[in-house]
Simulated assay, not measured.
Amino acid sequence: MVYPVAPGIGWWTAPSGALDKEPGDALARLLGATRAATLRVIEDGCNTAELARRIGVSPPTASEHAAVLREARLIASVRRRNRRLHTLTPLGTGLLHRHARRS
């Protein structure tokens, strides 16, 4: 005989600290290491060439990562002359700060 038990209130939350076994790696697990790094670098605002240099990839690859983050509404990009400037959206800022590395 099986008796189904309904989950209690807050069943989806883990005990305090259980979700972040290694601080800061949850964001990398969610987005992938390069996209997490991309989000962190964009926090201060940068153009695509700076982004590529900071995360160690080619400009086309950096542009692709930025496009995915933009489609997810984590960053916003505006064109300034012949460059595209990337900044975090409030959603991106919230995600980044929620999963900030703890030293």
Rank of each mutant, 00 (worst) to 15 (best):
L51I: 07
L51C: 08
L51T: 06
L51A: 08
A52C: 10
A52G: 09
A52P: 01
A52Q: 03
R53F: 05
R53W: 03
R54D: 11
R54V: 10
R54F: 04
R54P: 02
I55K: 02
I55M: 07
G56W: 03
G56V: 10
G56L: 06
G56K: 09
V57I: 08
V57M: 03
V57Q: 02
V57Y: 00
V57L: 04
S58H: 07
S58Y: 03
S58V: 08
S58Q: 12
P59N: 11
P59K: 09
P60Q: 11
P60N: 14
P60G: 14
T61F: 02
T61K: 08
A62W: 00
A62L: 06
A62C: 12
A62N: 07
S63V: 06
S63T: 13
E64N: 15
H65D: 04
A66I: 01
A66D: 00
A67L: 09
A67I: 05
A67Q: 10
V68Q: 04
V68H: 04
V68W: 00
V68T: 11
V68M: 07
L69P: 00
L69A: 08
L69C: 07
L69Y: 00
L69S: 04
L69R: 02
L69W: 01
R70K: 13
R70S: 12
R70P: 01
E71P: 02
E71D: 15
E71F: 05
A72C: 11
A72R: 10
A72D: 07
A72V: 06
R73V: 12
R73I: 09
R73F: 09
R73C: 12
L74Y: 00
L74R: 00
L74P: 00
L74C: 05
L74F: 01
L74Q: 00
I75V: 15
I75A: 09
I75R: 02
A76Y: 03
S77R: 09
S77D: 07
V78Y: 06
V78R: 15
V78K: 13
V78T: 15
V78N: 13
R79Y: 04
R79W: 03
R79V: 11
R79H: 08
R80F: 11
R80L: 15
R81W: 08
R81E: 14
N82I: 11
R83W: 07
R83H: 14
R84T: 13
R84P: 01
R84N: 11
R84M: 08
L85G: 07
L85S: 10
H86C: 11
L88G: 05
L88V: 10
L88D: 02
T89K: 05
T89R: 05
T89I: 06
T89Q: 06
P90N: 14
L91G: 12
L91P: 04
L91K: 13
L91H: 11
G92M: 03
G92Y: 00
T93F: 05
G94Q: 13
G94A: 15
G94W: 05
L95P: 01
L95M: 09
L95A: 09
L95G: 05
L95S: 05
L96F: 02
L96W: 01
